[in-house]
């Protein structure tokens, strides 16, 4: 293992400490591993809380700030945070208008947020609504399984629901935007390499030089299938085809095309992928009105990418363009 770390056991805490030092706009509670915007709670505004395992940066802590999240809880690498953290953060960001929990659909995240919401109801009186993201078309959805994973669309939910909260909408209204975004978005990811969890010390799976994994999530887990390495053009087909097969994206408002890097892929390659994906979409009659390219929801140093497509309408477009000021996403403010 070759990593810029001191002790594997200290990675998360030391990174949080670095975030605190780098970003005076944020306040970091190292004991509870919570990143707050420094002016939280914002009175009268719905509070937005997310969280998850570490290793996906800038998600979620890098999206704390005006126009996006009020706080984010960090777990160990690839491990959900615990209910105590979420409860503490929920208390810390409630400005009297309630708190929205944005939860990626993984068994651990869902269970820990569920326990936190139960505790919040019992102990604090803060009104909590949870929205679970599940946009990954690689997973067959079924009542009898854990269901689809929450991946790229989570970034978009945090931005758009954050903008809705900034506009002064109430908790139900902000939650409705979050659900609408999740319903209108689909994602599919692939890996060129595995990644190494610091505590494990070796790559999570072996992937030979000439093979790639299609249908991965964001935890270094293997995907749905392994195929021979192919040119970007063909990889783009493998990612876009199942997305378009799952939902109609030819609506009037156009789409937001989000090409995400998994952590170890250069922007140069992400733009090659963007080109290939946008050409496929053009042929399929899918218009692209907004785009996002870069590593926003990552899997440590994994090389690879994911494609997320979101059907826009006038309202979502306005919320996307609204000002945002966070370490990981910043415009108009």
């Amino acid at each position: 293992m070759k990593k810029l770390i001191n002790d594997p056991a200290d990675v998360v805490t030391e990174a949080l400490s670095g975030i605190a030092a780098a970003h005076p706009d944020l306040r970091v509670d190292l004991e509870h591993k919570i990143i707050y915007r420094s002016d939280a709670p914002v009175q009268g505004k719905v509070g937005l809380l997310s969280g998850g395992g570490s290793g996906h940066e800038p998600l979620h802590g890098g999206f704390v700030g005006p126009g996006m999240l009020d706080a984010a809880c960090a777990g160990e690498v690839f491990t959900s945070p615990v209910p105590d953290q979420m409860l503490e953060a929920t208390r810390g960001i409630d400005g009297g208008a309630g708190v929205l929990h944005i939860v990626k659909n993984y068994t651990g995240d869902v269970m820990n947020f569920e326990m936190a919401a139960e505790l919040a109801a019992a102990d604090t009186g803060v009104e909590v609504v949870s929205v679970v993201t599940n946009d990954d078309v690689a997973v067959q959805d079924s009542l009898y399984t854990a269901g689809r994973r929450g991946v790229g669309v989570t970034v978009l939910v945090e931005k758009l629901a954050g903008a809705a909260a900034d506009e002064g909408r109430d908790l139900a209204g902000v939650a409705a935007i979050a659900r609408r975004v999740n319903d209108a978005g689909r994602s599919m990811g692939m890996a060129l390499t595995s990644c190494t969890v610091p505590a494990a010390g070796q790559p999570t799976f072996d992937l030979p030089e000439d093979e790639i994994e299609i249908g991965i999530g964001i935890h270094g887990e293997p995907g749905r299938r392994r195929v021979p390495l192919a040119p970007a053009r063909e990889v783009a087909e493998m990612l876009v085809e199942p997305i378009l097969a799952d939902r109609d994206f030819t609506g009037d408002g156009g789409t937001l095309l989000f090409v995400n890097g998994m952590g170890g892929t250069p922007m140069l390659e992400l733009y090659v992928m963007y080109r290939e994906v946008s050409q496929i979409l053009a042929k399929a009659g899918v218009g692209v009105a907004r785009s996002l390219v870069g590593p926003y929801i990552t899997s440590l140093e994994m090389a690879g990418c994911s494609v997320t497509l979101l059907q826009l309408d006038d309202e979502l477009m306005r919320l996307w363009d609204a000002p945002v000021r966070t370490p990981g996403m910043r415009w108009g403010a």
Partner: peptide
């Protein structure tokens, strides 16, 4: 265990 394990194993 709920407070320290995280993941799914903590709640379970």
């Amino acid at each position: 265990l709920v407070s320290t394990v995280g993941g799914a194993s903590g709640p379970l």
